[in-house]
Structure formats: C-alpha cells, structure tokens
C-alpha cells in the first residue's frame, strides 16, 4: 500500500501549477525515500525533476516501489477541488490501476475522495551528468519572474551574461532591446531579498523565454530561486519546496547556428 499525507494541500497545488504548463503526463516514482518525477516537455528542450522526501510528509507509507503514470491536467483539475486549508492524502494499492486523492477539511466535517485512473507510460529516464557550475546565482524568485516577464516583451529569448560586475539579462527584437543588471546584495533586510552571485568564470548563455516563463510558475513555492550555469550546458533553475524537497528545471541553451 502507498499512502502519503500532507496537512497543507496548498503545497501540492503549487507543485502542480509549477509543472502543468510543461508536462501533459508524468511518471511518479514512489519509494520508501519519497516521491520523484523526472519528465521532459514534448519538444525535449526542458526537463522537470521533482523530489518530495518521505520525511517531509505528515504521514508516509510505501510498502513497495510504485511507478504511477499520471495525467498532469487531470491531477491539476482534482487538486483545484481541494479547499485552501484542506489536508490531502494520496492513496494507492499495490499494482494500482488508479490513485485516490482524499481531501479533508480542517475541522474534519467534510471528506472528499477523487479517484484518478493511472496511465501506462514509457520510461525514459535521462542520465544527468554531475556538473560543477561556473556560475551560481541566488535571487528573489519574484524578481526572476519579473525579469523573465518584462524581457519576454522584447524577444523570444533572454541572454544571461555573468561577470564579476554581476548578472545582466538582455533581450532584443523588432521593437528594440532591453537589459536588466543585478549586482550582489547580501545586505538585504530579509534573507529572501538577497542576491548572491558565485562566479568562477564569466559566461554568456541564451535561453528561450517560453520555457523560462513556465519555470517561474514555481515562484509561489519559494522566495528564492537558484540558477546554475556553465558555458554550453543546460541551465538549472531550482526552487526549494519548504522542508519537503525541491523542483529543478533543466533548460537546453540556444546556440549559434
């Protein structure tokens, strides 16, 4: 039997909001250590890696490893049925054909169950090599969302240029061009407002706005986002999910034709 309970269903709602624009379906791997998802968008340009540790759940039981293929749009619809303060429990039997989402109101006067059919999916786990990144940036997630949104008006892609002066995001297109520079700011009043730039080597990379604007949907999960970059390798954009895990997005760069 598999059973995982989260007092705050809002966390799971936010996780779904953070992946539903990139993925139509995904395999949820459940084991003793927790729930993991690794899935690419249909164009194989970006990859979502989600990890929810078992010790982060309020109750967690997984008697045997399960691979459950789920429709992300259906799961998203179901989670929209949860009240903001509801507790959520995911439950499946061994060799399941479906998974049940159980929502319970805070004072336990309402209990709703939604059963979702599982789907058969081909596994295509990619091997992601260990990389030491030449530039790692931590910044407020709201700021990153804003930059992606604002610069998307000017072009289809954003160039990230990191130097010892800071990081510069730029975009250009038919209407003109725009750039936004950020310098390190560790004196911010609040930790979540800090900008931390750890640069070993300067770099310049270009990424498609379309995907970046999907990644920033994870902003409500965490006040800070971490961007890890090296020349000519995919960007890693990471958001922590409270004390329970993280969501990492990988994005293949655009390179000179």
């Amino acid at each position: 039997m598999f059973e995982a309970r989260l007092v705050q269903s809002a966390i799971l709602k936010k996780v779904l909001d953070a992946v539903k624009d990139l993925l139509t379906e995904a395999t949820f791997e459940c084991s003793d250590s927790g729930i993991q998802v690794q899935a690419m968008d249909s164009a194989h340009v970006s990859l979502v890696s989600l990890n929810l540790r078992s010790d982060g759940f309020d109750k967690y039981r997984c008697d045997r490893n399960l691979s459950m293929g789920m429709s992300i749009s259906c799961m998203s619809k179901i989670l929209r049925c949860a009240g903001a303060e509801d507790t959520v429990t995911l439950r499946a039997w061994d060799n399941p054909e479906s998974i049940t989402f159980i929502f319970e109101s805070p004072n336990k006067d309402k209990l709703a169950e939604y059963e979702m059919k599982l789907i058969n999916m081909d596994q295509e786990h990619l091997g992601i090599p260990e990389t030491s990144y030449s530039c790692v940036i931590k910044m407020p997630s709201g700021e990153f969302s804003r930059i992606c949104r604002d610069l998307s008006q000017f072009g289809e892609s954003i160039t990230f240029a990191c130097s010892k002066e800071g990081i510069k995001f730029s975009a250009s297109g038919d209407y003109g061009s725009a750039n936004i520079k950020l310098v390190q700011n560790t004196d911010a009043d609040k930790e979540e407002e800090a900008v931390v730039i750890d640069m070993q080597e300067p770099l310049k990379l270009t990424f498609a706005c379309r995907y970046l604007n999907c990644f920033v949907k994870a902003g409500p999960l965490c006040n800070q986002v971490q961007l890890s970059m090296s020349d000519d390798v995919p960007l890693v954009c990471e958001y922590k999910i409270g004390d329970i895990g993280h969501i990492k997005y990988y994005l293949a760069p655009k390179i000179d034709d």
Binding site: M40, A43, H44, V45, S46, L47, Q123, E124, H125, L126, G127, I128, P129, S157, T206, A208, V233, P234, Y250, A252, P253, K254, I255, D256, D257
Partner: peptide, 14 residues
Amino acid sequence: KKKQTTLMKFFKAP
C-alpha cells in the same frame, strides 16, 4: 541567429 538545442545533446538517453 541562434538555434534551440535539445537535452539529448547533453544528457544520456536511457
């Protein structure tokens, strides 16, 4: 003009 790469170029297929 820049061309979009895919992750297959960087990551190992199963």
